[in-house]
Amino acid sequence: MSGILVFLEQRDGMVRQASIDLWNRLQEQAAAGAEPQPLSGIIAGPASTVGIETMLSGSGTIYHVSSDLLCLYQPESYTQTLAELFERSGCSSLVFADTALSRDLAPRLSVRLGASLLSGCSGPSAIGAGTCMRPVYAASVVASFAAEAERRIYTISSQGPAALPRKEGAIVIVPVDDLSCEPSRPSAFASRIAMTSTKPDVSEANIIVAGGRGLGSADAFAMLDELAGLLGGAVGASRAVVDEGWRPHSEQIGQTGKTVAPRLYLACGISGTVQHLAGTGGAVMLVAINSDRHAPIFDVADFGIVGDVHTIIPGLIKEVREFLKKK
């Protein structure tokens, strides 16, 4: 019983960065392990595989099902295709990056394949062991889970980019064209994706500039947009701000919003309630700007500055601009 099949998610014909990072982390881990399990991959849908071996490290076979029926995420077509390829591959583990698509697809497949589903795992080290750790109860607790079935499906939370690909070994692309991707059960039919932003999504951003009620108005978020733009990051929001209608729900972070794992989380005018912190546990560094020296956010921050966001943020933007100019 061995072999790991990695789902390489494509959007608009490009393999997504989250999947590439996952593949490379798994290769890294395999290289370090005593008995590495062989890795193979699946791309579902028409996608450009030119140059893919420069992005993916190590060796492995990548099955590519380029049917047009898989352009967009069609739940049933994807489920059938992956279930069939998993059966054929003889692998015991199927691994996904934790994304909106995999959160829908993985539970379907686990039922279809009779597999244990370990989702939102904090790292790929889980895979050999059939165990998984992830935050529960508003991230105030970490739970460990163990797979009981022989087949396992994992979704792994983002941990940012892995080390640069190593060049040994070969990535071999194998086109698969004998699969019917016509859905044979009732299914929703995705007709299009409306892009809402070209900036990184908060769930995937390395840098997040998040704003709370302390900003005082929707207009004040212009300065967060500007700062996030300069730093190459995304804007996030507390629920208070979303409920006021200042920002869209897609930017909400916390228990009833998104869970994020950036390298830097800059919390501006956010008090730091448990419900908000439920989403920020994955941040490597948390920096807080708040006018109240005793705001709870400072209890969980690595760095802080006490003051009014309306003076600190413009000041910081000025400093960043000067810094970038000098570089």
Binding site: A115, P135, V142, F145
Partner: peptide, 18 residues
């Protein structure tokens, strides 16, 4: 198919530098 094997409280408190 999945068994919960442990729960551990997270210590979130950090020493903030200003």
């Amino acid at each position: 198919r999945v068994r919960l094997t442990g729960l551990e409280a997270v210590v979130r408190k950090k020493q903030c530098r200003f």
